[in-house]
Amino acid sequence: MTHLISILVLLLKIYATKSCSGISLKTQELYALVFLTRYLDLFTDFISVYNTIMKLVFIASSLAIVWCMRMHRVVKRSYDKNLDTFRHYFLILGSLVLALLVHEKFTIQEIFWAFSIYLEALAILPQLVLLQRSGNVDNLTGQYVFFLGAYRAFYILNWIYRYFTEQRFSRWIACVSGIVQTALYADFFYYYFISWKNNAKLQLPS
């Protein structure tokens, strides 16, 4: 749900302000790639109606956001291109190499799955770098990043629960990557809570 809220907050920001300033196109493109490569199992495995709908929502919303930031006549003008310079190709390349080395099974689908898990763990980096560079974080962008990080933190609680309640719980690729992913938010969370406590605007040190 916090993942859904983060997407809604981002769409709201873009729709209401007709601006994507403060948002990293590179992070958004990485998420689109993450969901497209992870949900290849849409065609092979059925888990539940909820699961299928969520997969379609995550694919559609990530593509829609990338389309908006690249193609929308008004929105694309507010994109902070000069601040969004993270070399995201290295993240893609590194995740691909790691997926070829560390995976659950040597099949196309499993390698893409592992790739998407590794890439998702790192995909927030261009966004965090952009926020750090711009210093001031507008309210909706701050909420967006907070909910995006919160959703991964909740996953960790869920894994602890599943570890104790399920017979065979072994998903160390997802767990280790998820912990790394959440750890990357630690700095952001710290400043988010400080600003919340002081009832002040969110500011990141440069």
């Binding site: 888990i47 997969k55 997802a174």
Partner: peptide, 10 residues
């Protein structure tokens, strides 16, 4: 059991 493992998380 050798039940096929699926990725049930999003």
């Amino acid at each position: 059991s050798s039940e096929e493992k699926v990725h049930d998380e999003l």
